[in-house]
Design a binder for these strands. Sequence first.
DNA 1: TTTAGCACTCAAAGAAACCGAGTGCTAACA
DNA 2: TGTTAGCACTCGGTTTCTTTGAGTGCTAAA
Lengths: 342, 342
Amino acid sequence: MLTERQMLILKAIVDDYVTNAEPVGSRSISKRSNVSYSPATIRNEMSDLEELGFLEKTHSSSGRIPSQKGYRHYVDHLLSPSLVTKKEAENIQEVLEDRFAELEEVVKQSAKVLSDLTSYTSIVLGPEVFESTLKQIQLIPISDNQAVAIIVTDTGHVENQTVYFPHKLSSEELEKVVKILNDRLYGVPLYKLQQALRTEVANVMKKYVDRYDQILEVFKEIFRHHHNDKVYYSGKTNILSQPEFNDVDRVRDILNIFEEDELVSKLFRSEEKGLKIRIGEENRFAPFDDCTVITATYSADGKQLGTVGILGPTRMEYPRVISLMDYLTRDLSRLLSNRYSK
Amino acid sequence: MLTERQMLILKAIVDDYVTNAEPVGSRSISKRSNVSYSPATIRNEMSDLEELGFLEKTHSSSGRIPSQKGYRHYVDHLLSPSLVTKKEAENIQEVLEDRFAELEEVVKQSAKVLSDLTSYTSIVLGPEVFESTLKQIQLIPISDNQAVAIIVTDTGHVENQTVYFPHKLSSEELEKVVKILNDRLYGVPLYKLQQALRTEVANVMKKYVDRYDQILEVFKEIFRHHHNDKVYYSGKTNILSQPEFNDVDRVRDILNIFEEDELVSKLFRSEEKGLKIRIGEENRFAPFDDCTVITATYSADGKQLGTVGILGPTRMEYPRVISLMDYLTRDLSRLLSNRYSK
DNA sequence: TTTAGCACTCAAAGAAACCGAGTGCTAACA
DNA sequence: TGTTAGCACTCGGTTTCTTTGAGTGCTAAA
């Protein structure tokens, strides 16, 4: 629906605004090597583009800036895919190839490398605990009625929690309990543990363990707390360097969000596979009205594990960020797949 | 060395400046009910106090603000201890009395309640792993040459790490190794583990385990990573609400510090027992030149565990913060002592 | 259809004027 | 001798006005 020339101009304006952060005038577009029209012509087109909703003015005689719709069109139809530079690729490889780093560390470092390369804020949602299954459960007594429960998943993820038993348990009893749990719950997805406790464990335990109901209650409690996935941030303050965010009041709202992991997890967790871009109000979250969120998922053996996210101003270097995230998640997935299948 | 009247005036100026964040003039001091001198007299005293280095001017005809030395004198000699209000006490109790929360959670919540009550940034350094001893070590195989190592301390703290063995290990071998480790290393302080590996374990393992040297090497690696104590923050962005920090550039340096846990740990970890106040340049850390750091230690059964810290502007509500921190650390210590001795 | 020309707009930066909170000093007072 | 009233002075902050220049929209010519 836009003419060739309009698209050319829209693209030029977005590109210019992204790098200079200042309203773009007709003259500066006209001077570009790939544009051969006079400022007056450009002005006419700009006027049309504004009428169509792709551009905005900051005041009546100012240059134009892209509107949300303008960015959207740019992202969907205009952006020239950029290649990851050799240096960037090396940076990423360095992090991923550290054979000794554990999964968690790799994920953490991925966040760091992303925020360093883009100078936006990166958020990485750790491997989704939700889908992984129980490998082993351990109970380590700390005192008479206190123990540390340790849950290990098939992905090597460990969770631990201190528990209190309502009555003293001998170590034999404890062993018996743990044995039953491991026998019956091995391979059960974490989110089904509570249920399996009732269907698989209750009857067996009834036979062999005193006051089994109280103990079951304790484990039910333990299995409740496992949906809080880990969130890793990097470059939280990068947004402060963006000229459109050098007002403390506007920034505070955004920075505060990072203090609530559950909220962030909700905002950035991507259900669908692949890369997703939400511009401005598309986030449906007022503090992000001037921000763009790009998320991409990573997986292992086709099983979706987590999400990598970038938060920056709507005036974002889209091509670069997109190619970086694509590269990173692709490689991260490959790495994780290799590790697991071994 | 200061006269009664000078102290009265210095105290009044600090109190005023702390609440209003604006240079204090002679008239406003003179109007205070506990001051019965005319502005002119106050001016003379202020002039003297400035000469002595306790006050400063922002420009030649401005009111006075306390200098770093002024705050120091105030803190050391002038501040009227404030009582923790009923409401504040309740807030703290609520957090501490949650019997079901594990140690880590209590510490985390303590940070939150402190930052909420003070509206400064609170930093709590978790129980020092350093001093605690090994309770149990577990190895849970994930794949042929991969396992999760889990270390539980006497304080119920759990650390875990993924490890890679250079060769395949049968589960019998693994069990043997773990048994030896637990037999020989029980009760050894974490920081001595590496050493004990050589003195206590090496010889025994030599006898019973194939290629024991390679395996020892793996554990040596595991025991290396245990000095990174946990850091809990709350109210990271509170500093943004302070009028003296509404310049983005100044704030960025400070917020960036919070992204490096080791640095923060170094800055806030208090070696000495009790409450400690560092004002402005006393922090010996340029980004904190306009900040005050107050730290207090908490302990269990006399054994020092960690540090609670507050970061705010030098213009801080000293009496309130001090009494709150005193109250919190005292209660936290009592709670932890009770839990452990059970 | 494109472009040159020109009047017009408006934010941003600077300059001038003013305001007022606050000081320092002097002289009078208790 | 210590305290205070009075007054000239200082200087940051605010307001108002001016200037500047990048940019537009419109018109008319190429």
